[in-house]
Structure formats: structure tokens, C-alpha cells
């Protein structure tokens, strides 16, 4: 199954994407990840104001079959979460890079995002 890997985003090996617009970044899960999970039925997001470190588990996404941790690819403070995906988890399946975003982080280290995977490297990782 082919999946979308937009060129303007950075990626974590654990299948999250980051859209950087300094000083904040938006985080979600990739098209590949939502295809692997299929039918997402529940999303749990971090509290606004929580400080997270890069690589820290801070959200949970549940498909019919399993619960999966979502890791923040960047460090900083959660400034906004997407209540729409909590209300309607299927948005993660239908629009993973748009309406299905998870949370925004006020970056504590703006260089961190640059160390994440490019779309080309992430595409290679998922064999696309």
C-alpha cells in the first residue's frame, strides 16, 4: 500500500510527523502509521501546558485491536491540542497531515527538528 510522505515535513522513526513554524511545531502521525493501525477509535492527548522531552510518550492512539503510544519528536511545552480528533478519531485516518493533527509544541530547542528524518529518509524507512 503506498502512503503519502509530504516533502515539507520532518519525521520521527516512530512514525510521527512535525511541521515546524518556529517557535512552534505541530505534531501528528503519518499516513503510513494510520494505514498500519487502521480504524482509529480513540485518541488521548497530553494536557496543555505539559512539558515534554523529545522521544517522550505523551499521547495514545487506539485502533480496534491495539493501543499505541505516540512520542513527541521534539522538546517543549504543549500549547494546544486538537480536540477535534478526540471527538472524532477517524480524522486521523481520513486526514493524517491536516485535520488529524495531534498537538502543538512551543519548541525549547529549535535545532532538534532539523535532526529528524527528511521525507526521503522516512520514505526509505517505510519502504515507500
Amino acid at each position: 500500500m503506498s502512503s503519502q510522505v509530504p516533502a515539507d515535513l520532518r519525521y520521527a522513526k516512530s512514525h510521527e510527523w512535525v511541521r515546524v513554524s518556529a517557535p512552534t511545531a505541530t505534531v501528528g502521525i503519518t499516513d503510513h502509521a494510520q494505514q498500519e493501525l487502521t480504524d482509529i477509535v480513540f485518541v488521548e492527548l497530553p494536557a496543555e501546558g505539559r512539558k515534554v522531552k523529545a522521544g517522550e510518550a505523551c499521547a495514545v492512539v487506539e485502533s480496534v485491536k491495539t493501543a499505541s503510544d505516540i512520542y513527541s519528536p521534539v522538546s517543549g511545552e504543549i500549547t494546544l491540542v486538537n480536540d477535534a480528533v478526540v471527538e472524532n478519531p477517524a480524522l486521523v485516518n481520513s486526514d493524517p497531515y491536516g485535520a488529524g493533527w495531534f498537538f502543538q509544541v512551543k519548541l525549547s530547542n529549535e535545532t532538534e527538528a532539523a535532526a529528524l528524518l527528511s521525507s526521503v529518509d522516512y520514505g526509505k524507512q517505510i519502504g515507500g
Partner: peptide, 24 residues
Amino acid sequence: LGARLVEFGGWEMPVHYTSIMDEH
């Protein structure tokens, strides 16, 4: 058929072809 295969009791079996919800 493009099944996604997983381990089940020592067997490599399809967990779904399209999605669990769809098949259910």
C-alpha cells in the same frame, strides 16, 4: 489479497485485508 499478516499461536495469519471494522 494484500493481507496484513501477524503471528497467532505459532502461525502466520491474516489480521485483516482492508480493515477490521470493514470486515466486521
